[in-house]
Deep mutational scan, measured.
Amino acid sequence: MSIQHFRVALIPFFAAFCLPVFAHPETLVKVKDAEDQLGARVGYIELDLNSGKILESFRPEERFPMMSTFKVLLCGAVLSRVDAGQEQLGRRIHYSQNDLVKYSPVTEKHLTDGMTVRELCSAAITMSDNTAANLLLTTIGGPKELTAFLHNMGDHVTRLDRWEPELNEAIPNDERDTTMPAAMATTLRKLLTGELLTLASRQQLIDWMEADKVAGPLLRSALPAGWFIADKSGASERGSRGIIAALGPDGKPSRIVVIYTTGSQATMDERNRQIAEIGASLIKHW
């Protein structure tokens, strides 16, 4: 058993032996400061991975655009179909130039040979490839079927209504393609630790998130040596930015963190910096 498999397999085991986890309101002070700095709403939640207890939250039940963070949920739905014998990670999917949409750094290189379902999930999560996400959405029946999958998990909040890139429109008060921090954190925890997916599929999902290559300026920039993080970021119109993550010290995840912001006029660099500073406060007061 690899170190990674050891880590995921023991998450339920550690729940019975973990020390009490204490919240630190200092992080919420930073979240509120980020709102002031960005001139935008910020949603935040910090969840204990083992118990599911909410440690801190700010606007946990307000809607925010999901942006590309939905791609983790999408690959969770794909893995659920794999577990049920309805899909194979090794199945190759062929597509054409007409299928390519904006920001497809991986799929645009494989027009001649296509990509496997496994490769598409990797591209969608680690590189946020939009065509990969659309191709995967097609395999499960489209955005409405992803919403149905989430409903069956008990998440009646999170919804996907459109495809890439239209889902990134982020119109104020538009509930399409949105979630709430509390709903996203709970759903992510179920995917990573619950019985919905097999152990192998849970491991695969967290491996893809751990290999994320496009979230460096966010929480990863504040991470001390030896800490673990598996994450997925997102960005969209109207100053929207977000990240969902499982992270913790000693090389294993122990908390879920979800951060969303929307409605800012700030630059992408400034949005990144504010999220990184929230992460730094979280780690300092861990």
Rank of each mutant, 00 (worst) to 15 (best):
G239C: 06
I11W: 15
S2G: 12
Q97E: 15
L219Y: 00
F228N: 02
D212S: 06
E210G: 09
D212Y: 05
V157E: 08
R202A: 10
G85V: 05
L135S: 02
A185V: 04
T262H: 11
A124V: 04
T139R: 09
V106I: 12
T158Q: 00
G90K: 10
M153L: 13
E56P: 00
E164D: 04
L223F: 04
T186D: 13
R91H: 09
G39R: 12
H285Q: 07
D33G: 12
A183I: 07
L89Q: 04
M268K: 05
D113N: 05
F22A: 12
C18S: 13
G43N: 00
A124D: 00
L49S: 04
T267S: 12
R202K: 14
A9S: 15
A40E: 09
N98S: 14
R255E: 02
T178L: 02
L49F: 11
A200W: 06
D113I: 09
R176S: 09
S201P: 14
L219T: 01
W163H: 07
I3A: 09
M268H: 06
A148S: 14
G239P: 01
N134D: 03
Y44E: 00
S201M: 08
I93Q: 04
T126K: 07
K232L: 03
F228A: 06
P181Y: 00
R162A: 05
L10H: 08
V78T: 05
A200K: 14
L223D: 02
S281E: 13
I54G: 03
L150S: 05
N98E: 14
H94N: 12
I3V: 10
A9N: 12
L218G: 03
R176T: 04
S57M: 10
T158D: 00
T147S: 07
T158V: 00
T179A: 01
H285E: 07
N168V: 00
E164R: 03
F6Y: 15
D83S: 04
T138N: 14
A245K: 03
T198E: 11
H5T: 07
L188G: 02
S122C: 12
P12V: 12
H285L: 07
K53D: 13
A225H: 14
L218I: 04
A266T: 11
S57Q: 13
I244C: 06
T262G: 08
H5R: 12
D177H: 01
A133G: 08
D99N: 11
M115I: 06
R63H: 06
E166W: 10
R7V: 10
R41Y: 06
V101L: 07
R220N: 02
Q86R: 15
H151Y: 14
D231H: 05
A133R: 05
L136D: 00
I244K: 01
I54E: 09
Q97A: 15
R59H: 09
A246H: 02
L135R: 02
E145R: 12
L38W: 07
I54S: 06
R7I: 11
E277C: 06
S57N: 07
P165A: 03
T138A: 15
K284G: 08
P65A: 06
A77S: 11
D231E: 04
P249A: 06
M180I: 12
L135K: 04
G242T: 02
A148G: 11
F22C: 13
I11N: 06
L282V: 11
G248A: 02
E270A: 10
N168C: 04
A182R: 14
A235G: 09
S236V: 05
K109I: 11
G114D: 15
G114A: 14
L137H: 00
I275D: 00
R241G: 03
K284N: 12
R91I: 02
A148F: 11
G43Q: 02
L47Q: 07
E169Y: 08
A246C: 12
L192I: 13
T267M: 08
R271P: 08
A200R: 14
S264R: 06
G242N: 04
E62G: 04
L188C: 06
D83V: 01
A215T: 08
K32Q: 15
V42G: 12
L79W: 02
G90D: 14
A183K: 07
E237G: 05
T187H: 06
A222N: 12
H110D: 04
A215Q: 04
L160N: 03
L188Q: 01
P60D: 13
A170T: 13
H94I: 13
P12T: 14
T267Y: 05
Q265A: 14
E166G: 08
A211E: 13
F6I: 15
N50Y: 14
L160P: 02
G52A: 06
P165E: 03
A225Y: 11
K53A: 14
T158P: 02
T139I: 11
H156Q: 12
C18R: 00
V21R: 15
D250C: 12
H151N: 13
W286L: 03
E175V: 14
A211Q: 15
T147H: 05
W286V: 00
L247I: 13
K144C: 11
G234R: 02
L73V: 11
A245S: 07
K252G: 08
A225L: 12
G39V: 09
E277A: 12
F149C: 06
E56S: 09
G216W: 08
P172Q: 11
S57F: 08
I93R: 01
I229A: 03
G226Y: 04
I3M: 13
D129H: 00
Q97M: 14
L19T: 15
L197Y: 03
G154W: 15
G239E: 05
D83C: 01
H151S: 15
T267I: 07
S281D: 07
K109S: 15
A211P: 03
E169H: 08
G234C: 00
Q88R: 14
R189A: 09
I3K: 12
